[in-house]
C-alpha cells in the first residue's frame, strides 16, 4: 500500500488506499461527473461564461469545479478526432498541497486520500502554489475565502458509497476502487489498446517513481499530458525541501556573518 508522505493518517483504521482510474478513451464528454460532483458536494456555480473552446465552458479545475471535462478537437493523421477527458485531483502519494499547508487543514484520510478540512483552512493560499497540477484554488465566486478541491467524496467513502462522479459516469470512464486493483486494470487496458494499434495510449500517474510518488487518480491518455492541460513531469516541490532548507540556512549564516563583518574593525567608540 502506497500511503503517502510518511504521514500517519488521522483515521482510526487504515483502509486500502482508494482512487480513480479515469480511462479517457471511453469518455463521451457528457459531463455527468461534473454535475454529480457539484450536486453532491454543493459546489457553487462557476460562472456563466461561454469560452468557445469546443464544448468546454468550465475551463479548468478550480475551487468551484472539482471534476473538469476537457474537449480537444484535433486534426490527426487518419482524420479528425475529438478527445474528451475528465480531470480531477490526483490525491498524490506525495502531496505538495498537504506538505506545505501550515495549519494542518489538509490531511490524508484513512483511505489514503487528500482532503481539505474547510473549518481549519485559513486561506493562506500556500497549497495553491504547491500543487503541481493546478488543482486547488480559492473560492472567488460565491467566495468564502477558503481553498477547495475534490475530497474524493470523503463523506460517501465513510458510508461505503462510491464517489458521486464515478457513480454518475455512464461509460465507466471513471472507475473507482482500491488503487492496486485500478492500477492492474489500467495496465491491462493499456496493453489491450497497444495491441490493437493505439500507439498513443499511455498511462499517467501510474508510476510510483514519478515526482509525486504516484497518483491516487490514474489516467489513460491518448496524447501528451500537456494537451490535456496536465504537467508532463509533475514534481512535489517538497521533494527538494532539503536543498531549500539548506540554502536558507546557508543564506542565514552568510547574513549573520555579513552583519558581523560589517562591524569588523569597529571600536567601541
Amino acid at each position: 500500500m502506497r500511503h503517502g508522505d510518511g504521514q500517519t493518517t488521522y483515521g482510526l483504521q487504515i483502509q486500502p488506499r482508494v482512487g480513480f482510474f479515469t480511462d479517457t478513451s471511453v469518455c463521451i464528454g457528457c459531463k455527468a461527473c461534473e454535475v454529480a460532483c457539484k450536486e453532491w458536494n454543493l459546489v457553487p456555480e462557476d460562472g456563466l461564461v461561454w469560452s468557445g473552446n469546443s464544448y468546454d465552458n468550465t475551463g479548468e479545475l478550480s475551487a468551484n469545479t472539482w471534476r473538469h471535462v476537457a474537449f480537444i478537437e484535433q486534426q490527426v493523421d487518419d482524420g479528425f478526432r475529438w478527445l474528451m477527458s475528465s480531470d480531477v485531483c490526483k490525491h498524490c502519494t506525495h502531496a505538495g498541497c498537504l506538505d506545505v499547508c501550515p495549519t494542518g487543514a489538509i490531511t490524508r484520510t484513512e483511505f489514503g486520500t487528500v482532503v481539505i478540512q474547510d473549518d481549519v483552512c485559513n486561506g493562506c493560499g500556500y497549497c495553491v502554489t504547491a500543487c503541481p497540477f493546478g488543482v486547488i484554488s480559492k473560492r472567488e465566486i460565491g467566495g468564502d475565502g477558503g481553498m477547495h478541491k475534490c475530497t474524493l467524496c470523503y463523506d460517501r467513502l465513510e458510508d461505503g458509497l462510491e464517489p458521486a462522479c464515478a457513480k454518475a459516469c455512464p461509460t465507466k470512464s471513471i472507475q473507482f476502487g482500491p488503487l492496486d486493483e485500478l492500477l492492474e486494470r489500467a495496465h491491462g487496458r493499456l496493453e489491450d489498446l497497444r495491441e490493437s494499434g493505439v500507439d498513443d495510449a499511455r498511462l499517467y500517474g501510474a508510476d510510483e517513481n514519478d515526482g509525486v510518488g504516484g497518483m491516487g487518480s490514474v489516467f489513460l491518455l491518448l496524447d501528451e499530458p500537456e494537451v490535456y492541460g496536465l504537467p508532463p513531469d509533475p514534481v512535489d516541490p517538497t521533494r527538494n525541501l532539503g536543498a531549500i532548507w539548506a540554502a536558507a540556512a546557508a543564506a542565514a549564516v552568510v547574513l549573520a556573518a555579513g552583519v558581523a563583518f560589517a562591524f569588523a574593525g569597529e571600536t567601541d567608540g
Partner: peptide
C-alpha cells in the same frame, strides 16, 4: 504537442 490545453496555465497562479 501543444504546450497546454487552449493555452491555459497548467498550474494555478498564486
Amino acid at each position: 504537442p501543444a504546450l497546454s490545453y487552449y493555452g491555459k496555465p497548467i498550474i494555478k497562479e498564486p
